[in-house]
Structure formats: structure tokens, C-alpha cells
Design a protein around this nucleic acid. Structure first.
Length: 272
DNA sequence: CGCCAGGTATGAT
DNA sequence: ATCATACATGGC
């Protein structure tokens, strides 16, 4: 029997480098398999994707729903080439972009982004991934032998920090519990935040314990696709001091988040 | 073994 | 307001 074509293929797609996009510190669940492909669960779908030269192949993506998910998650409708060209008028951005072209902002589930960046505080990336992995295995929905969905806050309703102990998240467990509680009670609403002006959205997110300026900003950028969000961590603080003592250039306006991701990744790989 | 990690809450000046 | 420190855990 002839095998039907059921892979979604992108040929010469502008500004999409999987390796860089998936491992630049915005998402924590992607793994690299032995055959060089990348694997993760996005929402309730298992995604396997590989990059062969100018071709990007999403495996087993025949259904329309999965294609729509990929289009949204990888932000495929946005013209990064054009945006980055504008941002490149700034010398520092251009340096970062020339070295790391192909990074896109992933549009993740807002709850997953919120939770992931609560876990990220004062933590390192390998351990963040480990905690999230244990979180999914302990409380997510099993898809098959290895793969679990990210647990919803609805399914965690009433959970205590003690019950989250298996994650070994340390002092962050009580923050996750507080987020679950406030989202379930409606004291904080992600669907409302989605519609809010950014300043108001920041204030809402910061009602959750363990959510400060940085985590709120990451949630808005990676969970809500707010490209004007600009997370400032230790690396970006250094960037600001070293390159933008007078503040961000005007041309970044509306795309501060994209600028941030390139500058962050570039500066972090520079070390010192 | 010590240092540090995509911060934040808390308490002291 | 601004500043220092603790925080859980484990990667390196």
C-alpha cells in the first residue's frame, strides 16, 4: 500500500531556524532526538519536526487542526524578515540578528507560559525543564508512553504546595499553587488579560504570588504573543547598561519582544 | 564543595 | 523609594 503524504512541509520559509527558536530559552519542553528531529507536546498534540537544509518537515500533520496549531505556535503569519530588517537599523540588534537569524517568538499556551516562567525564577534552564517534565508526568494527561500534556489549572483545582512536592520546584511550589487558586477562583482571568491594554495586563498578572515584572512580561510575550512586551532579566539588564543607557531606540516600538529575544540570546552566548 | 541560576517577597535603611 | 538577603534545589 502506498504511503500517503501527510507531512506539512515548509520550503525556503523565511526566518525560521528550529534549533535556535526551540532552544533559545523561551520554551522548555522540546527535546532533540537521535535522528536530529525535534519533539514536544504542544497543547494536546505531539509535534515532531526536522530541518533539512532549506526544508522544514512537520511529521504526521495531516489534520487541519494540527496545521492551524503549528501556524499559530510558530507565528508563521508574521513577517519576521521585514520586522528584523527594520530593527536592524539599530547596530546592536543587527549584530545579534546577523549571528542568530531565524529566531521566532513561539506563541505558547498562556497558562503554560505563566507557570514555566514562575518556575524559571532564580533557576537554570536544565532544571526548569526537569521540573516542568515532572509536572507534566505527574499531573498532565497521558498521550502515549512518553508524552504528556501540560496540566491545566482547572485539573489542578485545590492543589497545595505540599502536593506539588514531587516536582522538586522548591520555594516556587507555593507560587504555582497560588496561580492555580487565583485562576480557578476567577480572581485573575487569562481570557480577560488577553483583551487588556498591556499595562493593565501586567498589573493583573502581578496579583499572583511569585509573579513580578519579569515573569509577567515573559507571560505576555510568550503566552499572549504581545510583541511589545520586553522582559528584563540579568542579561538584558547588562544589555541595557552596555548598549542602551538612554533607553530603547524608537524603531523597536511594537516589536520590543522580538528585539529582546535576539539581544538576550546573543548576549547570553557571549558570557562574562 | 562552592558558586550560581531568564527573580521575587520581605524586611531594613 | 531603594537596597540587601533568603529562598529550595541541583547543574556545573
Amino acid at each position: 500500500m502506498e504511503k500517503i503524504q501527510k507531512n506539512m512541509v515548509l520550503k525556503d520559509f523565511p526566518c525560521l531556524n528550529l534549533e535556535r527558536t526551540l532552544f533559545c530559552g523561551q520554551a522548555f519542553r522540546w527535546i532533540r532526538k537521535d535522528d536530529g528531529s525535534f519533539h514536544a507536546v504542544v497543547k494536546d498534540k505531539i509535534i515532531d519536526v526536522k530541518q533539512n537544509g532549506s526544508e522544514i518537515v512537520f511529521e504526521n500533520t495531516s489534520d487541519e487542526e494540527t496545521k492551524k496549531l503549528i501556524e499559530s505556535y510558530f507565528d508563521l503569519k508574521r513577517d519576521y524578515k521585514k520586522i528584523c530588517n527594520v530593527l536592524s537599523a539599530d547596530k546592536s540588534f543587527k549584530t545579534a540578528f546577523d549571528e542568530y537569524e531565524g529566531i521566532r517568538i513561539l506563541k505558547q499556551d498562556s497558562w503554560e507560559a505563566l507557570c514555566s516562567f514562575i518556575i524559571s525564577q532564580n533557576n537554570n534552564i536544565p532544571r526548569i525543564s526537569g521540573i516542568i517534565d515532572r509536572f507534566c508526568k505527574a499531573f498532565g494527561e497521558k498521550l502515549n508512553g512518553e508524552d504528556y500534556t501540560f496540566p491545566t489549572y482547572e485539573s489542578l483545582k485545590g492543589i497545595t504546595a505540599e502536593e506539588l512536592a514531587p516536582l522538586r520546584a522548591g520555594f516556587r511550589a507555593k507560587y504555582i499553587a497560588d496561580a492555580v487558586e487565583k485562576l480557578n477562583s476567577g480572581e485573575v482571568s487569562l481570557s480577560e488579560i488577553e483583551k487588556m491594554p498591556i499595562e493593565e495586563a501586567r498589573t493583573e498578572l502581578c496579583k499572583i504570588k511569585g509573579v513580578g515584572a519579569k515573569v509577567a512580561e515573559c507571560t505576555l510575550l510568550y503566552g499572549f504573543g504581545r510583541m511589545e512586551a520586553f522582559p528584563v532579566d540579568v542579561w538584558v539588564k547588562r544589555i541595557m547598561a552596555e548598549m542602551y543607557p538612554e533607553g530603547l531606540p524608537e524603531i523597536f516600538k511594537g516589536n520590543e519582544g522580538i528585539a529582546q529575544q535576539y539581544l538576550f540570546h546573543w548576549r547570553r552566548n557571549l558570557k562574562e
